[in-house]
Amino acid sequence: MIRLTRINYAYPAGGEVLSGVTLALGKKTLTGLVGANGSGKSTLMALMAGLYTPTGGSIKIDGRVSPGSEKQIRSMCRLVMQDADLQILGATVEEDLLMGHKRTDAATNAAKAMADRFDLLEMWDRPVQMLSWGMKRKLCLAAALLDKPQVLLLDEPFSGLDFPGMREMRRILIENKKAGLTQVVSSHDLECLVDLVDDLAVLNKGRLVLAGPPESVLDHVQAHGIRPPCSWMAGHGITPWDDGDA
């Protein structure tokens, strides 16, 4: 589904952020993109979303290649960034969800169904400023899913969420996985993510240093600034983070 070949990227201001990243991600998989702060996770996500063009190498997503086809890639992928306030452009939940869609009965019903799935239907007419941080994050996610992307890219989706919020985010990831969506989730913390992912890709200072199923990489992540999950360090392998998961 996604193939990165020797990706290099440097911001116009200078300084290479990513160098020689080669990675293949399968269709309908959930991949964890992990790394310490400043390792290049967000930049790689933006590249996969078609928002940046690689300065070297190429990205192929379902046949579309960047450099060249960024616009088509953008129509296939949805990136949910960390700062919800910047992504929410509508004044109400309704307006934000319907942004970019023709306001037909079918679109409105689909948006309402999505709002219902994310427990946002009660807030349908409310100003977005009245939503909590967790609700804003859910609204961004709902808006992204409403566009029916082939690839969903979530940049640090667990950051700033409380325990119920994290449980809900996990539930959403599991549902998306069951629905066959290809997902890439970036995080600097493996604890609440590792039992859900099919594969892990570890970045360190802009280089891909480890990739593969969690069981094959967890013994080596500590050397790259990532703390293995508690269960792994205690010798229990990968255990479910939450018993309530479906």
């Binding site: 933006a46 953008r74 942004m99």
Partner: peptide, 22 residues
Amino acid sequence: QKTWNQTLAVAGRGLEGAEAWE
């Protein structure tokens, strides 16, 4: 910093085309 991220968010949501602003 916010304006840069905002630009990315607009493009990331597919709002950088005429069809999204009809």
